[in-house]
Write a protein that binds this DNA or RNA. Structure first.
Lengths: 249, 249
DNA sequence: CGTCACCTTGATCTGCCTCAAAAACCGTGG
DNA sequence: CCACGGTTTTTGAGGCAGATCAAGGTGACG
């Protein structure tokens, strides 16, 4: 099935686990998944989908655009996660009952949703589906661990480089080919809050990447010639994304 | 059932989800869980249980002691997670097939294990068990998110304070009452690698906490009079640990 | 064509790093 | 009981990354 077919058959869930376990699903299960989702529905830039502490009554898949996991404390914002199309953005809340962070649209997005009870039925009737959803949340956790390592190991320009390298790989897994340009809606303040630096320093880090000839970031969009050079600079190793290709060791 | 009874009846798994969902299990399921584990078995300080990339053939519960999730890169060590008794330390590997980090004993530990196939049988036969294990991995993820926030928000003394506050709460959930002393096997180098600072700076951060009268850390053991003061200093909010008590908002 | 959000630049200050070395502690064996 | 070697902790000095405060500049859009 080529990409166009995937999206006409599975307009809501066509990206779910694409490049990961998607190939291993029975076609029947892909249809069950698609059939249980209601939508699509749009959110505007900055619109909050889930508030911290709110009881989770549904699960949400991101179809188009980006969303962030956000913690606000003492008026300061910290971004602790980032979602691309095909991600279930609030699945952690399904088993935890509520979430410890907000989930917010970064730029305009399209989503689809399924109610908690329906989701529970499906997971109980189909262990394979439960395993897939579990897997999806563990992918989030693996990315979290990598973010921890990045914050512990990298300086500001490297963190930003790593972020874009990660996005590039995650988008490639779902068939978005960003060869020379990677478009995002992120402001430098967003990048700063993802990387744990001040907005001013994020600006200087972006300038550094430009000086080094590794890429040019303008209004969130990365213009780049040599992805391998960027990845080398950031110490990027895609193993933690659990793409379908073999693990790096 | 009081604590002594729990440990004579469930010597291997008595701490699993204690203070969290444990109360909601059917007694029968607690026995199934206990019965499937083989052990206990000991590991010495620094001994590696799982290597990054290794295919996961079993799941391991920590009974006594501490273990860390470690990534080594270019000869430098980064600690991306921390486990206390009752944690399944390598459960992420069960659904992901392999892990992106090593799991290592910090100090001597006791563990018990179950084979992958047996675990799969149990989770498929008992959706409640599958949900519980899923929940346990999501708890890890919630802690990861908090670590990301800490690295983004706190300076070195606050990070160390937060780490001990977290440990105190996690140990309390499983019935370890550390009122005036919290004993750990961590060197200042370990603390440094968990907090993303150099060992020398970790030492100065420890000294800072002493100066401030918040607590004295000697060879990993924290001597403390006022936990509330430490938590205030660290900006600690236990909501992310999903203890049985109501969420903080 | 003005306004608002975003990006850029400069200056100063602090936290943290690195290199270097000394002191305290711990287990071990004499 | 003490001497010993290795590990861990402590201290000092110099330098860099990143925070903060304060202005400008630039671009998108009504």
């Amino acid at each position: 099935m080529d990409a166009a077919q995937v999206f006409s058959t599975f307009p809501l869930t066509g990206d779910f686990l694409a490049g990961r376990l998607r190939d291993q699903f029975a076609v029947e299960e892909l249809h069950i998944l698609e059939g249980m989702m209601a939508g699509p529905r749009c959110l505007a830039d900055g619109e909050r989908l889930i508030a911290r502490g709110q009881t989770a009554v549904q699960a949400t898949i991101l179809i188009d655009g980006f969303m962030i996991d956000r913690i606000i404390r003492d008026g300061k914002r910290f971004i602790v996660g980032l979602h691309v199309p095909g991600d279930f953005v609030d699945l952690h809340g399904f088993a935890l009952k509520h979430l410890d962070h907000d989930i917010v649209a970064a730029g305009p997005v399209r989503i689809a949703q399924v109610g908690r009870d329906r989701l529970r039925e499906v997971t109980q009737a189909r262990p394979a589906m439960a395993r897939a959803l579990w897997f999806a949340t563990l992918l989030d956790a693996a990315i979290n661990r990598q973010w921890i390592r990045n914050l512990e190991a990298l300086d500001a320009p490297q963190r930003i480089a790593h972020l874009y390298a990660e996005l590039h790989h995650r988008l490639t897994l779902i068939g978005h080919n960003a060869t020379r340009t990677l478009r995002t809606p992120f402001t430098q303040t967003d990048l700063a809050d993802m990387c744990g630096v001040s907005a001013i320093h994020a600006n200087r880090a972006v300038a550094r990447l430009r000086e080094l000839g590794l890429g040019e970031i303008r209004r969130g969009d990365l213009y780049i010639a040599d992805w391998a050079a960027l990845e080398r600079y950031a110490g990027f190793d895609p193993a933690y994304l659990y793409g379908a290709a073999a693990p790096s060791r």
